[in-house]
Nucleic acid binder design. Structure first.
Lengths: 376, 376
DNA sequence: ATGAAAGCGCTAACAG
DNA sequence: CTGTTAGCGCTTTCAT
């Protein structure tokens, strides 16, 4: 009876639970009874190839079969096993978003969640799945490295990598569908970048803060200072360059503006800069602060308040990002909107197109917008 | 020569790229040449079963073979395909963390990232992979439903589901390894819960705010008001219950304290409550506000400042969570630390233990801590 | 339109 | 210690 040829594949455990006597109710607890495509085929009375075809939307399946299959699927609650499917199709239909941060720093970036949501939505539209991997320590990072090498996903979105990131080499080596946020990496050897024109946008902001056509003469800002973001992370060097350029152009190359370096994109970095400037007297020689991000600006404003300075009356402060920190602050922060909530979708799109074999640009620049509020 | 018996399996495309002449450099571009365990076996000169054994840390592999395999792996950059591995082992080694939020609300929850980091670290320790799925819209949610049914992960951590969540039924139906954050679901039918004693913790806070042993007599708070979180989400009902109880116990059951309902766990909800109370005069009849979360408290404080009220001099405000919002505020917020940064690890642990077949408690309560700062 | 057969890349008994 | 033999559950020619 068991003809050696697998006309219906190996009848191992595949058999509807109790095909006949359903008397002895098992003690339950058992792992969910795996229902396979063979079970469905048997119940529907068609070959499993037909079930597969139907489920994958192939044209040639009769209405009769379709109906029977629908019924069987409904009855069994069948869902095709994702590993088996991926193995057979050599496509996982997964796009992985890798967030690389040194653990606690993650919390300082108010942009992450909106970026994530944006990418998630775009990928979901495609019927694929976005999964987020958090590389926040060495363990996690090396696991992820392994995962990437194992073909876990069809494409990758890289977020917040510093220039020396341990994960970068694997993307440089293997030719994977990917996109990275920010420029300044050794671009050719990695993957397509998406960024904003940090230099242009920051320059616009600084010119706005230093504007002399608008406010009353006694409010014109002439003594600027800068708080930089971490220079080993994308965006920070460019924004700093913009500051140096505009200052040189406005006040001459010999003009020396105070500069502080925040080691992270955090409120704390902003607060520390102010404390330092307060202790060395710099604070009395400046009338506006250009901060490299909203969080840094917010931290600075907090500390200025603590020292009894009024913002913007005594000193103006500008930010960058238009993140939640900008509006949660009093006064609300004048900033640059880099539309981070669209960046995720744009990057997802670039990855998807690569997966589909399309060509994508090496560099995509997204627009920015000056948002004038009360802080500057 | 091709002996029909698959001693070395089907020699389809498996052959090291140019095994001999490496003259004609291909135009590159091609998809990464898939290197399999067969390639490694062939190069190492052993059977692929031996390679598999060695790579999976089985005891019986000779040093000689091991060395040859190491060399072959290094040479080829081989990494076992994750789909094939999962299919054969019937284990994905993936734990999925599902975050369910109505899109933009995600940004209002400052707890997410620290929770995520905590879970991520715990899962990575195990050598498994945590992946985060964001159910922020219908598309994404139904994709995730499908994914869960397809055995995408070995276990699931459920975060921020409201009581009527569309994803809950699938966990109730299939018997999956999972853990959910918060109580108040129809527990028996879903999965193990992890929570804090919201009632106890909030009661402690309220008693602290209303304390009469500590502050000068003219600062004793006797006219409390409450701003509730969204009552369809875990935690909110319990905290509200605590308020009602303590107030009744302190001032009698007929005492009516003003109550506002924030539709989300957001700053905005706190601000709106204050605006409402300002417009109807309630604001003049209260001297302390118990807010259901730090974000709500922060929004309330902002708005109070805008109205020229001093916190805590004119009115005290307390929060809950000890999130970043609590310290980013001036004055810093007196709150309850629920150690969300440990919750992720605890939940991950519960899921892992289920996967390993261990028994886990239906309900795990985590400790809380009253954090006294300046706002109350 | 549908069944049979082969195979995706890997693990895991089972014999030696 | 190692090779052989079966699958894991699904997709995809290839005939029919």
């Amino acid at each position: 009876m068991p003809s050696t040829s697998p006309s219906t594949p190996p009848e191992t455990s595949h058999d509807t639970p109790s095909s006949g006597t359903d008397s002895t109710q098992q003690p339950a607890e058992a792992t969910a009874p795996i229902v396979t495509i063979y079970d469905v085929a048997k119940i529907a009375g068609v070959s499993y190839a037909t079930v597969s075809r139907y489920l994958n939307g192939h044209p040639n399946v009769s209405k009769a079969s379709a109906a029977k299959i629908d019924a069987a699927v409904a009855k069994t609650g069948f869902a095709p096993n994702s590993s088996a499917r991926s193995l057979a199709k050599r496509r996982t239909h997964i796009v992985a978003l890798i967030i690389h941060y040194n653990s606690k720093d993650v919390y300082n970036d108010p942009n992450i969640l909106s970026f994530l949501d944006s990418a998630n939505t775009r990928v979901a539209e495609e019927g694929w799945q976005l999964v987020t991997l958090l590389a926040s320590n060495d363990d996690a990072t090396s696991n992820i490295e392994q995962l990437v090498a194992s073909g876990f996903a069809d494409g990758y979105i890289l977020f917040t990598f510093d220039f020396n990131d341990a994960l970068l080499p694997i993307f440089a080596k293997r030719h994977l569908a990917a996109a990275i946020s920010g420029t300044g990496y050794d671009r050719k050897s990695i993957c397509p970048c998406v960024d904003v024109d940090n230099i242009g946008a920051m320059a616009e902001m600084i010119r706005y803060v230093l504007r002399d056509d608008n406010p009353p003469a006694d409010r014109r800002r002439t003594r600027p200072a800068y708080i930089s973001g971490p220079l080993d992370m994308p965006g920070a060097p460019e924004r700093f360059t913009a500051f140096n350029r505009v200052i040189a152009e406005r006040f001459g190359t010999e003009f020396e503006a105070p500069v502080a370096y925040s080691p992270k994109w955090s409120r704390d970095g902003g607060a520390q800069a102010i404390r330092q400037w307060a202790s060395d007297g710099t604070i009395n020689r400046i009338d506006c602060i250009i901060a490299a991000s909203d969080t840094i600006a917010a931290g600075a404003i907090d500390e200025l308040h603590r020292l009894g300075r009024r913002v913007p009356d005594d000193i103006a402060v500008s930010g960058f990002d238009n993140s939640a920190a900008a509006t949660a602050c009093t006064p609300q922060i004048t900033t640059v909107d880099q539309h981070i909530e669209r960046r995720g979708a744009v990057m997802a799109d670039i990855v998807i197109r690569q997966i589909n074999g399309e060509h994508v640009p090496d560099l995509t620049m997204m627009p920015t917008e000056l948002i004038v509020r009360q802080s500057a």
